[in-house]
Lab assay of single mutants.
Amino acid sequence: ESFERTINIAKGNSSLGMTVSANKDGLGMIVRSIIHGGAISRDGRIAIGDCILSINEESTISVTNAQARAMLRRHSLIGPDIKITYVP
């Protein structure tokens, strides 16, 4: 059984350190890789294959690959914290 989780990740000045791609069925974006030493890796809660539904409350539903990457990059630049809703 999968259910949504919303977490805050304190990334400070470091990068999030993950790559994503659009989910084929349009439901959010899938975590493709996690870079060791990045904020996601240090936090430890998000794993490869998890589905991200929103970043800082901006929905990732029906985004393209390019939009998913641009959204991740944009939110990575805002502030020291990032809020991610995902399904493990």
Rank of each mutant, 00 (worst) to 15 (best):
E57Q: 11
L53D: 02
S62N: 15
S14L: 14
P80F: 06
P88H: 09
G79D: 06
T64I: 01
S33K: 13
M29D: 00
R69P: 07
G12V: 09
G17Q: 00
E58I: 06
D25W: 07
M71K: 05
L77F: 10
I84Y: 01
I52Y: 04
T19M: 09
R32D: 14
A68Y: 05
I52F: 01
R5W: 03
E57T: 08
L72N: 03
R32K: 14
H75C: 13
D43V: 03
S41T: 03
T64C: 06
N56R: 02
V87W: 07
S2F: 14
H75A: 15
I61C: 13
V87I: 14
P88F: 04
N8E: 13
Y86K: 00
L77P: 07
I40D: 02
N8V: 14
A10H: 14
T64Y: 04
I40T: 05
L77Q: 15
E58W: 05
G49M: 03
C51L: 13
S14K: 13
R5S: 06
G17S: 00
M18A: 04
M71F: 10
N13V: 09
R45N: 07
I61S: 12
I30C: 09
M18W: 06
E4S: 15
G26D: 05
I7Y: 00
L27P: 15
G49F: 03
S14R: 14
G38H: 07
V87R: 14
I61A: 14
N8I: 15
T19V: 14
I52H: 01
V87D: 04
N56G: 11
V63T: 10
E57F: 05
G44A: 06
S2D: 12
A47Y: 04
E4V: 09
K24R: 12
I48W: 00
N23Q: 12
S41W: 14
R42S: 08
N56W: 01
H36K: 14
S15T: 12
N13M: 09
M29A: 08
G37A: 05
I7H: 02
G38D: 07
T19F: 08
S59P: 10
S76K: 06
G38Y: 05
S59K: 11
L72D: 04
T60W: 06
E1C: 05
S2Y: 15
S62L: 08
G79P: 05
S62G: 14
G37M: 00
R42C: 09
N8C: 13
F3K: 10
I9A: 01
L53K: 13
S14W: 10
T85R: 12
S59R: 08
G17C: 00
H75W: 10
A10V: 14
L53I: 11
C51I: 13
I46A: 01
D50W: 00
S41C: 12
L77W: 08
M18E: 01
N56Q: 05
I82E: 02
N8K: 13
S15A: 14
G44I: 00
D81V: 08
D43K: 00
E57V: 01
E57D: 15
R45E: 00
V63Y: 08
G17A: 01
Y86N: 03
D50T: 01
I61L: 15
P88W: 02
A47R: 13
R74D: 08
P80I: 07
I9H: 02
N23E: 10
A70L: 10
I52A: 00
T6H: 06
R74G: 06
A66Q: 12
G12T: 08
H36S: 15
E1M: 13
M29G: 02
Y86H: 04
K24D: 12
R5A: 07
G28L: 01
E58Y: 05
A70G: 08
T60V: 15
E58L: 04
M29C: 12
I84M: 06
I78M: 14
M71A: 09
M71C: 10
I55C: 04
K83T: 11
G12R: 09
A47E: 12
I7R: 01
G79E: 08
I40G: 00
A39D: 06
A22W: 05
I52G: 00
M71I: 15
S54R: 14
G12H: 09
S41N: 11
N23K: 11
E57M: 07
I30W: 04
I78V: 12
M71W: 06
G49I: 04
I9D: 00
R32V: 10
G49L: 00
T6K: 05
K24F: 07
N56A: 05
L53Q: 07
G26M: 04
T6S: 08
D81E: 13
E57A: 09
L77T: 13
G44Y: 00
V63M: 15
S59T: 07
V87Q: 08
A39T: 08
S54Q: 11
I82Q: 02
I46T: 02
N8Y: 13
D43L: 01
